[in-house]
Design a protein around this nucleic acid. Sequence first.
DNA 1: CATGGTTTTGG
DNA 2: CAAAACCAT
Length: 674
Amino acid sequence: MTGGCSIVWFRRDLRVEDNPALAAGVRSGKVIALFIWAPEEEGHYYPGRVSRWWLKQSLSLLDSSLKNLGTSLITKRSSDSVLSLLDVIKSTGATQLFFNHLYDPISLVRDHRVKEILTENGIAVRSFNADLLCEPWEVLDDEGRPFITFTSFWDRCLSMPYDPEPPQLPPKRIISGDVSRCPSDTLVFENDSERGSNALLARAWTPGWSNANKALTAFINGPLLNYSTNRRKADSATTSFLSPHLHFGELSVRKVFHQVRIKQTLWANEGNKAGEESVNLFLKSIGLREYSRYMSFNHPYSHERPLLGHLKFFPWVIDENYFKAWRQGRTGYPLVDAGMRELWATGWLHDRIRVVVASFFVKVLQLPWRWGMKYFWDTLLDADLESDALGWQYISGTLPDSREFERIDNPEMEGYSFDPNGEYVRRWLPELARLPTEWIHHPYEAPEYVLQAAGIELGSNYPLPIVTIDAAKARLQQALTQMWQQEATSRAVLENGTEEGLGDSSDDTPIAFPQDMQMDIEQENVRNRPMGVARHYEDQMVPSMTLSTSLLRGASSEEQEEESPIDQRHLARDNNRAEVPNDVMNMEERVQVFDGQSGLPQFNIQTALRTTQDMSQGESSSGGGTSRRERDGGVVPVWSPSNSSYSEAFVSEDNSYLQRHPQVMNWRQLSQTG
DNA sequence: CATGGTTTTGG
DNA sequence: CAAAACCAT
């Protein structure tokens, strides 16, 4: 149309296939493909070592694909994406910007700002859905409100009036814009000490969009068939292994959906019940990923605060020794320990085991769930803020449809169910390798002669249980009682109108991360590493802790906070080194993040919808009224600060919202106990 | 092999 | 809490 040149801004959509922003760029003329590395914008959530390793590989493959098509990827190192965009615009004369939507809290705010500022500068900005089957604002109940349980959400997704778009092919050719005056920065994703550990990753994983496609094909033609029966085995190679590919958008979920559905129809026609069921279960996990974006969009602080408000009075155990034992895989519960060692060594964990270790963390150790979530973030290859927040909230019992709060899972029992022969445990805990299966998941109950024969001395070369399950149950009961009392007290205070609720607002402030989340390396650990895994000390060293106050301060602060959000972020400037901020001393204290009731960002769905309509009308020149046109209408979620406290629907007890959802059973249980 | 009680699980 | 899986009789 304009003949001008457009920037296609790649983020977590590192593919050339089924990439609507890229397609739009190609359609409109010359293209500048851009990637901006601005990790400091992520606040606490500077990507971990393995995650950066993946990103590096993925970008390099994207670049070579783009080169084959006629252009190459411009890379910029930045601490402010908006400034970098303006800079690139200036040096290339681009007149348009295209990108695909992201839904994590930081991106929502940043992308909104991008739109505002660039539009002011006369740049046409359009954004697209490349990450989800349905945009969050499209999936609403009959009254036009967001769903609050996964099942109802997913049911609706699967019965939308239109199917997700079939995936688009890659462009045949890309005409490159003039980048002669826009040099790339070299991006540094690993330091010397990380390089050795990273080298090992390449043996197990092959990032990049074309490899993602191969992984998808391999999964669909292989393990998918028996997914329903195998999916609960800890060490089976029957998961899809697609999560890191999906995280970086190397693979389009729409493509996954369509291909898997095709297979399902096939199996259905053959009367293959197991296959059909497998596909449903696999799609459910795709659905959970969708739901995580949905939750993040509707409750953009769900990585910081429990969705159900009760937990804010829970007396978490602030014990860094527990935390350390958990990270090191020295809790005395073999399945938990095996999982933590695998995570440490490989950056990967089977989904079931993630649930096991997370549940142990929250319910047995009663450590604050955000610590665990942060550790996952730092160590997982497929670390994903939205998915992990959803997962931890589910485990912690703070979603209307999550596990009961009171429930404690028994690692021993889970051991025999996910690892019946103890192979997984033996693989990751060589010190237990000679223990017979009968005792492998509960060495603490094994007779002395069995232990001796296996060369185990409890408390010496393998720990006794850090907390017994009975003790954990008792402590949990006690903690709950305390929680209800505190809640009652607080409510009484509120009802007396003493302070208008402003007084004790520190109670909903997230507990700060511990000062030192680094895995300190003990000889023990090195000696005990699994055979054949030549690890380096540096494995999983938490790369950078930005112990700042909540990044959401940035999101919500514009009006009512004095400090600029940027000032609040202690940036790990030097890409490679962990940098401990000056105010680390304060971190023992809870960080004041939210000022009580006011000023949390709340997404205004109505506004977002209106924008959708406006934009799609504005867009009507570019083609027919297909659903794609409408859905690609350049919508970025619009948020507006609002007076109400966060997730009113979840927090307020007599809210009709929840009453309309009788299946929300935890909720009722919780509020009655008081 | 049915049956009823018990445990496990569920997003 | 309710459905499903499990187990003992």
